[in-house]
Amino acid sequence: MRGLVKTYPAPRGRRRRSTGAPVLASDGVDIEVAAGEIFGLLGPNGAGKTTLVRQLTGLLRPDRGSIDLLGHDLVRHPRRAARLLAYLGQESGALDELTVALAAETTGRLRGLEPAAARRERDAVLDELGLGPLAGRPLKQLSGGQRRLACVATALVAGRPVLVLDEPTTGMDPVARRAVWAAIDRRRAEHGTTVVLVTHNVIEAETVLDRVAVLETGRVIACDTPGGLKALVGDEVRLDLVWRDEAPLWLPAVAALRPGAVEAGRRWTLRLPPERARAAVTEVTTGPAFAALDDFTLATPTLEDVYLALGGQGEGLVRA
């Protein structure tokens, strides 16, 4: 994707009078994804992640810029996207009343598989994701995580060379998540499948992605491996302190920590060089400060810290 720009017209109120400025949802985005890569788009809600993948999947036409997918110009031929990639959107409305098995089989048929091949792939994918026992249940009777897993199954049917997955593991339990990532890894190892993944879960981003682009209000503010991005924030560590009640500000050591802390209710979050953090831990875990302390954690930086260090304004990232 090169120089991608997409502007939504300003939201219009009654009598078609404009109620605000036009929304620049993709603001000159340049992204290059290598074949066989698991590439992530990370950012809070409203950062423009979904707008970007909707352009990549041919659902939305960019105002400017170019999209080259496996040698095909998708701005000129948006319909070709459907013949190259499988897209997992955030909604399951089209499949809700089908059974899990029929949703997978029909999607396979609509990706061009013959009936026998569609049934074979359906059985293989349901088996791979552990959906066998749910095969006969309509999607809308399933829990959110199970339904999401069934939608992932439909995206994996008929093995496309590129998978575009918009928050695939939302609501899933750890077992289902592992099944999804194992299935994706297998496709990459066996067929060199490329994956573009939208997520706002920083832990997932760190563990499964090869590279990640951090998005903020329609712009890419950083793009590197998760390790490379974390090196940007240097060797600072994060110290979280949760007080039982009020923070004991009458203690000088605690009062000295306050200016650098981000406060959220009883939780203070501090980003400190390691030796300062160690000293702070010693201060708050001894004497009267410890009596006021409910919980504390000392952690190496996450992509959330990177996002904030890069000037990210949103607070929609999830650590789970």
Partner: peptide
């Protein structure tokens, strides 16, 4: 979207 991203 589901149908629109299938080659039908």
């Amino acid at each position: 979207d589901h149908y629109a991203t299938l080659p039908v």
